[in-house]
Write a protein that binds this DNA or RNA. Structure first.
Length: 974
RNA sequence: GCUGAAGUGGUGGAAUUGGUAGACACGUUGGACUUAAAAUCCAAUGUCCCCUGGGACGUACGGGUUCAAGUCCCGUCUUCAGUACCA
């Protein structure tokens, strides 16, 4: 009986589905374990072989944990809001919900055929109203909260209002907007409701504010910082400009320090933690206030080098700084104005591409040095970023290269305040080995002491204080898109109002087109039924709504928010949703479920989410913890990034004349080095003949061909290539001697445009899911990037066939109750040990080799003993579950192998009586010698020294030293 | 520039605390079976040198520590990923 993998796999996939084998229970005596894959976005292109890599790894771990007696939660779902479905909707008019649904079906089919042990009963989709009801609910909670820095956590705004009405806001230590004015309790009470709402908005964890956003005109939406790569949009590569817009923002900056500290408590890779640390960008220094001569205004700056305060020779403001227009003198006005115009025109990308050019303008105004009272010229320059710190710097040219270059360019003085350091060529930016000089009371001090002293003196003057700054900005939370969560928000007299949670979800309205409106409003501006009736608590027709956002209404009908939430909203809390399986309508996740499952024990996914999803999720979890909705501080305890699977592209050499193709193709083994051949080529006669060219040189170019036309060993299926496209119909091939045509191979990113995409579907059909699973793991370490080459799959496939033969032959089952041999027991137990260690270390590639070795050994031993072959199946079952189930049931087991307990490793079977010692001379192994394990050091030495090969090696020389490590090695020095 | 990861045969990759480098596969070559192909099985396969047997070299490069280094230390180079005027 042969190994009919397609039948076996279909049979067990059906069995698992029908028996709900992998359904997790929220009540169990077993310890819990939660294994999660990063949320997939169901794209129209479906899965390629790179996608399931992480899913296979997590599935192996989940199955292993079940064997180890854990109650495992291993769910899957879809991050189903997103741009591609909406772009498709814009082009075709197809509702994104329909596209998304189709794509999900494809995904599900593709996932199912690989045999994952997902608990599909807990599936979530971010775009389904029963899910986004709770995303809206969390948004409301954020709106209803403020961050109290006194006890370092978020609280309900009720506590804030209470304080306002009893004591005003003077003593409130909140993370809030910068432009807060101080008021007393009486003043608070005297304010109108609208005024109070305005003030509260400055404290809320999600707030509406006019912010400078990254506007992407091509996509018609704003983008978060992490959605921009190299100055262009991550999706589509469109240009991005700065624009002021009123947007919802998330006060993630309030959590900067906790997000930083929390990294110490979680088991993530160093590179990922480092990315988050950089993104949070904590820097410790001082805030310094400079008075502006002849003005009431002051310039506040942040510096990490308060010790260099006496090295300041000018001030630089960002061109966008508010003060610029106020302080610029009349004679400099035209100059400054022209400079601001010029910098505003430059896109973010130009600015980044061109960091070498120094530009700036003098405002004509002077600031006053807090200690020396010297006048400091105030410049503007685009090397100062409006978005970081206060948008202004105190320029210390001797200590900062950018300031140095700027000073040099504009002939500004560069005072040296470092003792014994030459700054004639460049600034001295290091904090180490400095002694401050020419700095009054700081002279002779090092960085640390000088900084401390400077801050102390500044505080005495009331012109500064120690300060910690974070690069992390508040996250913009509005998107001008259709396919996202609608906000549960309507506007009364321009003030945002939350819809009561009992009326959630607020469903996405229908629109007839998915584009922004003619007046530039987001797509929801096209909806006809998109107003909120506060009397009936219903979304009603816009016809009933007579007010603009800024007006009072007479019938209680108000306009709803037109923006939608960003992609990261739904993915910032989905891991809690999986915990709840029964009361999903009543709660986002019940207390019992949250208490039982806590957080994700193992999270596997790509590293591209380092500063987006993985940071936002941590933020929301900390917030939800503060407000008592969940009881964990971090969402993901351990996180592993799987490496990318690269494609192995195939190229053919095409003969060309100028840019024109001659439709003649040359086998790659005929080409060496450069992209041309000449009359010295052995096949030149044939080539000239076929190409019908004159001259003594033929130019070639490499063109991609589809990898599916390449049969084993880089051989091109020439007929398939000819039929690929009309222009190849007449292709002529110059082949190798044996009439085969070889392609050139190169490893590149797997992508449609490179024709190197391999889909799991065909692999599963040809070799089976078990082969695919094993091969994906066999390719190499999980975290590493590695190229895919379908040819190699025959290795693991023939392993499975050999394994099958170990259990089954033409007469049926071979396995019997024979007493296991010592050698077979040894093979089994060393395999148990190795596989267990490998899985615990996420070293799945080496396990596959171990299975192959074990199978080869057991075949050589002609092992038929059930006592060996049955536990061996359990070891294999996380990796190749279908074949394991099939053989397991043929052995007479009635229950699924997935709940069988993992075999116990016993050291005693591995104990050896002898050791094959390597005998080295000066560290080089010359021969091996089988010696008893219990032989003493002296006896080993005697035996080895007496050996004829030793005598031959030494050739009469007396050994200087003999090193013997019992059980390991013998090394003779001589 | 900075941060992180890595560099081992023709290829993917093994090698536990320093202790037989190249496990396991792919590919290649030769052989068996077959009318043939596929499938399967067997053998060889780091490079170089001479006939067996062995010898020399060999884990990016240059040094060092050690009886012994892919592994530890110092320096250099290269590749990949992330990040970038952050004051």
């Amino acid at each position: 009986m042969n190994y009919h993998f397609n039948d076996i796999e279909a049979k067990w996939q059906k069995y698992w589905a029908e028996n709900q084998t992998f359904k997790a229970s929220n009540t169990s005596d077993k310890p819990k374990y939660y294994v999660l894959d990063m949320f997939p976005y169901p794209s129209g292109a479906g899965l390629h072989v790179g996608h399931p890599l992480g899913y296979i790894a997590s599935d192996i771990y989940a199955r292993y944990k079940r064997h180890k007696g854990f109650n495992v939660l291993h769910p899957q779902g879809y991050d189903s809001f997103g741009l591609p479905a909406e772009q498709y909707a814009i082009q075709t008019g197809q509702h994104p919900a329909i596209t998304t649904d189709t794509n999900i079906k494809t995904y599900r089919r593709q996932l199912d055929q690989i045999g994952f042990s997902f608990d599909w009963s807990r599936e979530v989709r971010t775009s389904s109203p029963e899910y986004y009801k709770w995303t809206q609910w969390i948004f409301i909670q954020l709106f209803e909260s403020w961050y109290n820095k006194d006890n370092n956590q978020a609280e309900s705004v009720d506590t804030l209002i209470l304080k306002f009405s009893s004591e005003g806001n003077a003593h409130i230590n909140a993370d809030c907007d910068a432009d807060i004015t101080i008021f007393s309790s009486e003043e608070w009470s005297a304010l109108s409701s609208e005024q109070q709402q305005d003030i509260l908005l400055k404290y809320r964890l999600t707030y509406l504010a006019e912010t400078e956003v990254n506007w992407c005109p091509a996509l018609g939406t704003v983008l978060a910082n992490d959605e921009i790569v190299n100055g262009v949009s991550e999706r589509g590569g469109h240009s991005v400009m700065r624009k002021k817009m009123t947007q919802w923002s998330m006060r993630i900056s309030a959590y900067a320090e906790r997000l930083l500290q929390g990294l110490e408590t979680i088991d993530w890779t160093d590179s990922l933690k480092e990315s988050q640390r950089n993104w949070i960008g904590k820097s410790v220094g001082a805030s310094v206030v400079f008075n502006v001569n002849n003005h009431d205004e002051v310039i506040e700056v942040f510096t990490t080098r308060p010790d260099t305060i006496f090295g300041v020779s000018f001030m630089t403001l960002a061109p966008e700084h508010d003060l610029v227009s106020k302080i610029t003198t009349a004679d400099q006005n035209a100059h400054v104005e022209a400079y601001i115009q010029a910098t505003a025109k430059r896109s973010e990308r130009d600015r980044m591409a061109d960091v070498k050019t120094i530009s700036g303008a003098f405002t004509g105004a002077y600031a006053e040095h807090p200690f020396t009272k010297e006048p400091l010229p105030i410049w503007i320059g685009d090397y100062v970023l409006a978005g970081y710190g206060t948008g202004a710097v105190m320029s210390v040219p001797c200590g900062d290269q950018r300031d140095y270059d700027f000073a040099n360019h504009f002939n500004i003085a560069i005072p040296n305040i470092f003792e014994g350091i030459d700054i004639s060529e460049e600034a001295y930016g290091s904090k180490d080995n400095v002694k401050i000089a020419n700095s009054d009371f700081l002279n002779g001090l090092n960085y640390k002491k000088a900084s401390k002293t400077a801050i102390y003196e500044l505080e005495k003057l009331g012109q500064g204080e120690g300060k910690t700054n974070y690069r992390l900005r508040d996250a913009v939370f509005s998107r001008q898109r259709y396919w996202g969560e609608p906000f549960p928000v309507y506007y009364v007299k321009g003030k945002p109002q939350m819809i009561d949670k009992v009326h959630l979800p607020i469903r996405l309205p229908d629109v007839e087109k998915y584009l922004p409106t003619e007046t530039g409003e987001p797509p929801l501006g096209r909806a006809d039924v998109w107003a909120w009736c506060t009397k009936n608590n219903k979304v009603v027709s816009n016809d009933l709504c007579h007010s603009e956002q800024s007006e009072e209404s007479h019938n209680g009908v108000y306009p709803l928010e037109l923006n939608t939430m960003p992609g990261w909203a739904g993915s910032s809390w989905y891991f809690f949703r999986y915990m709840e399986d029964a009361m999903r309508d009543e709660t986002f996740a019940s207390e019992d479920a949250l208490n039982y499952w806590e957080n994700v024990d193992l999270y596997i996914g790509g590293s591209e989410h380092a500063t987006g999803h993985l940071l936002y999720s941590r933020f929301w979890v900390k917030f939800m913890k503060d407000r008592g909705f969940v009881n964990v501080e971090e969402p993901f305890k351990k996180l592993i990034n799987q490496g990318m699977i690269l494609g192995t592209s195939a190229f053919v050499y095409e003969a060309i004349h100028g840019e024109k193709s001659l439709h003649v193709y040359l086998s790659s083994d005929l080409i060496e080095g450069p992209n041309f051949i000449d009359s010295t080529h052995p096949k030149w006669g044939e080539i000239v003949n076929v190409c019908k060219i004159e001259g003594s040189k033929l130019n070639l170019r490499l063109i991609h061909t589809d990898v599916s036309f390449v049969i084993t060993s880089d051989e091109l299926d020439m007929e398939a290539f000819k039929n690929w496209r009309p222009e190849y119909k007449t292709a002529k091939f110059i082949t190798h001697e044996d009439k085969t045509f070889k392609v050139k191979r190169e490893v590149e990113k797997m992508s449609k445009s490179k024709y190197n995409v391999v889909k799991p579907d065909q692999i599963v059909k040809d070799y089976g899911a078990d082969s695919l699973r094993l091969y994906e793991m066999f390719l190499g370490p999980l975290e590493q990037a590695k190229p895919w080459n379908t040819a190699g799959i025959t290795g693991v496939h023939s392993f499975l066939k050999k394994l099958w033969k170990l259990y089954v032959d033409d007469n049926g089952l071979k396995v019997n109750d024979a007493e296991p041999t010592k050698d077979a027991l040894k093979t089994l137990h060393k395999t148990i040990k190795k596989v267990e260690e490998d899985i615990e270390n996420f070293s799945f590639n080496t396990s596959v080799s171990t299975f192959m070795i074990a199978s080869n050994e057991l075949t050589a031993l002609k092992c038929t003993s059930k006592a060996i072959l049955e536990p061996f199946l359990i070891l294999l079952s996380p990796y190749a579950p279908h074949i394991a189930e099939e053989l397991w049931s043929r052995l007479g087991n009635e229950q699924s192998i997935s709940i069988a307990s993992f075999p116990k490793f016993e050291e005693k079977y591995l104990v050896e009586s002898s050791k094959n010692y390597p005998i080295s001379f000066n560290g080089k192994m010359r021969f091996t010698l089988e010696l008893p394990m219990d032989m003493s050091k002296d006896d080993i030495e005697k035996t080895v020294m007496a050996h004829e090969k030793t005598i031959a090696q030494l050739d009469g020389r007396p050994p200087k030293k003999v090193i013997i490590v019992p059980g390991k090695i013998v090394n003779i020095v001589g």
